[in-house]
Design a protein around this nucleic acid. Structure first.
Lengths: 197, 197
DNA sequence: ATCTCTATATAGACGCTGTCAATATAATGT
DNA sequence: ACATTATATTGACAGCGTCTATATAGAGAT
């Protein structure tokens, strides 16, 4: 039942995953083909099917890992906070922006409904958790609060996602050498926070 | 030099465009292949190259036409306004949302940097014009204004785009039968407008 | 009218792609 | 030792973008 060490190749599933992630970073989702992954892993093009039933399953696994990483990063930094929603918002927004600008192809994969399975239960679960963290920031009373927490949460996540996604398409200004699209990104986060008080 | 009527087939370029748009609406960008377009237009797979040099050029032409349509719609409705930035914001936001929810595949194509050429001068030109319209809404003095017009413009466009894009990925709530994701969409627009006063 | 040039359309090839079926091999369970 | 299961290989198939060679149709000039 539980094989501690898979046979023929070694831990091929893990190797396939790592190789696929490297191809994603380098060439984008379009470069993550079953055959390219198999080649880079040193196996035949038919081997991956034993571990990922098709390309969609492989890409969905990649996406899920990215959402996991985002959630972990957010939770880690949220753990150090008290009840003030201001810094929580900043943590969420900067986690998303940092990730998006540092790993553009990973970020874009997350929203490629044609390539990954957004109905996958594990994927849904981790996305819901991220959304819950965000809602929690708004669920405690906000001074001068005029909208329900979901509206705040949807608005903030939309704004952050939209900003990252459009920047990755070359809008507003080109992505500079360093990681961040910081100045404007910080400005719109500030602007959003100003709305709350 | 100028042929009033193309020959062999008729206005094949136009036919290719129309057929490609229909395929886009039905199957998404992935369904718009040179060979499928040629087949639907009733010509051989090698014919389209005379009118669109490759698939990227065809998809870029499709995208440009959508941006044109968005700009026209926005301008038409802006023309009926006075100086108050409130309704102008609503026009921009609802034009984007209505378009995105009515033609999801067209909307998503606009941001597919891997499929279209975002450096295309004509494409850049119309995108800039849309951005200019938005900036104009914020450039007149807004009561209690605390940020520059670009920050307002980037923030609003980001929020609207992010909302549409995430909804099209199935986030927040499923797209219902009718066109709009209206209630929540209107709420976040209201929220943004509240920020300005 | 004919001849030339250019624009357009066809047909075939190449190397990719995902996926499936048939086969081979290695590890596990009895 | 044997049967079963998991894994890997190989070959095939259709579809893709794009290139090349070839054919045809229209335009312009003579």
């Amino acid at each position: 039942m539980t094989q501690l060490k898979p046979f023929h190749h070694g831990d091929l599933k893990r190797v396939l995953f790592d190789v696929a992630l490297a191809l994603l970073d380098e060439h984008g989702a379009g470069g993550v083909t079953i055959r390219a992954v198999a080649k880079a892993a040193g196996v035949s093009h038919g081997a991956p099917v034993n571990h990922y039933k098709d390309r969609r399953a492989l890409l969905t696994a990649l996406a899920k890992a990215q959402f996991d990483a985002l959630l972990t990063g957010i939770d880690t930094r949220l753990a150090e906070l008290n009840d003030d929603p201001g810094p929580g918002i900043e943590i969420f927004a900067s986690a998303m922006m940092d990730f998006g600008f540092r790993y553009p192809h990973r970020y874009r994969l997350l929203w490629r409904a044609d390539l990954i399975d957004h109905a996958d239960p594990e994927l849904l679960s981790v996305m819901d958790k991220i959304y819950d963290r965000l809602c929690a920031e708004f669920s405690q009373a906000v001074p001068g609060r005029k909208f329900d927490k979901d509206t705040y949460a949807v608005a903030l996540w939309s704004m952050v996602h939209g900003y990252v996604d459009m920047r990755l398409s070359g809008m507003f200004e080109p992505l500079n050498d360093s990681i961040s699209g910081a100045p404007r990104g910080e400005a719109i986060i500030d602007m959003f926070k100003r709305f709350l008080v």
